[in-house]
């Protein structure tokens, strides 16, 4: 199936540009590859280079363009098990703030697993076990005293199959604010969220209808609106378009580009064009002979697709694999 199994994670140096380039459906630039190296995993405190401007990433406290650390979620030497089966082997990576990061890789390599460690959704799977550290703005989200409920409120998630609750459109969006004791004007928040999800015009006259009465693409945007309404900082998307037609897919992608001004987005996709079109950074994951997933390569999307460092990546993105 594949020729080599790297023992450790190899991530080529790369530097995303510090300022957000305007996002167009097909991205052209992310900045020169290979400049200003920041080694992964976890940069060593004393390590020279990579932390300066522009766009050193991964170090808490290292400001991007607004005094915040460039990294939001960081995985440090993560391994995951379902019962005795190891699904993820020793993955380290970080997710840049207000960027769109795409996770690509063959089916079953552990993309969803990895995504779901970022908001502790896997806690719901009884056999799941995790080693390593996951931090969010520097805080260990699996640390003692951290409640997964709080983590999930700040790291929202959109699923592969649209899963609106069997309630009205309004109640779907109001669900999160309500449970979180939102004090402001709910109507306004619902409208704002639906507008941001580019759904308002289509549903403003039927807010009381069931969320299930919408089309698939509308349902998925409703789920995005629902997620936005809780005001998370990160939105995880697990193949959000795989159940949608091309038109609805494009709508969602435009929406993502729009949302990434305020939100950090991580998207899992099987669609190479989608990853190429819609993301800033791409992480390629595959699995070893023991079917445990590991990161092969991470870099600016353009480079991953045009000039990958690894044979495995090249094979995959060019469709010779999986």
């Amino acid at each position: 199936m594949e020729e080599e199994t790297p023992v450790t994670v190899t991530t080529p140096p790369h530097t995303p540009s510090g300022t957000q380039p305007p996002r167009v459906p097909i991205r052209i630039v992310t900045g020169p590859a290979g400049a200003g190296a920041a080694a992964m995993p976890a940069p060593q405190p004393g390590e020279p280079g990579g932390h300066g401007e522009p766009g050193g990433h991964g170090e808490p406290g290292n400001s991007g363009n607004s005094g915040e650390p460039a990294t939001t979620v960081r995985l440090e030497a993560i391994s995951c098990w379902y019962g005795g089966f190891r699904a993820i082997r020793d993955v380290s990576l970080d997710i840049e703030r207000r960027r769109i990061t795409a996770l690509i890789g063959p089916s079953g390599c552990g993309k969803s697993t990895l995504l779901r460690t970022m908001n502790r959704m896997n806690d719901l799977v009884p056999s799941f076990r995790l080693a390593g550290r996951v931090t969010f703005d520097g805080v260990d989200i699996y640390g003692r005293g951290v409640d997964p409920v709080v983590v999930r409120r700040r790291v929202g998630m959109v699923f592969q199959k649209p899963n609106p609750f069997p309630k009205s459109i309004y109640d779907n969006v109001a669900f999160g604010p309500r449970i979180n004791g939102y004090r402001g004007k709910l109507d306004e928040l619902v409208e704002r969220s639906l507008r941001r999800a580019a759904l308002w015009d289509e549903v403003k006259d039927k807010l009381r209808q069931s969320g299930l009465s919408l089309s698939g693409g509308q349902q998925q945007r409703l789920c995005i609106a629902r997620t936005i309404a809780t005001e998370p900082e990160v939105i995880l998307m697990d193949e959000p378009c795989s159940a949608l037609d091309p038109r609805a897919t494009l709508q969602i992608e435009e929406l993502m580009a729009e949302l990434s001004r305020d939100y950090t987005i991580v998207i899992v996709t099987h669609n190479m064009q989608q990853a190429a079109r819609a993301s800033d950074t791409t992480i390629f994951i595959t699995m070893g002979d023991d079917r445990a997933g590991y990161v092969v390569e991470r870099g600016p999307t353009l480079r991953i697709f045009t000039n990958p460092e690894h044979r495995l990546t090249e094979d995959y993105v060019s469709g010779r694999f999986g």
């Binding site: 908001n119 959704m121 719901l124 409920v149 709080v150 983590v151 999930r152 409120r153 700040r154 929202g156 998630m157 699923f159 199959k161 899963n163 609106p164 609750f165 069997p166 309630k167 669900f175 999160g176 449970i179 979180n180 789920c223 629902r226 997620t227 809780t230």
Partner: peptide
């Protein structure tokens, strides 16, 4: 009740009880 509904609610920061009371039981 499909698991996806539960997950959807959990992913928004609902507590177990809220998931049960506001999503699973109504569904």
């Amino acid at each position: 009740v499909p698991r996806s509904l539960r997950e959807g609610a959990f992913a928004m920061g609902a507590t177990k009880f809220e998931v049960v009371r506001r999503v699973v039981v109504p569904a």
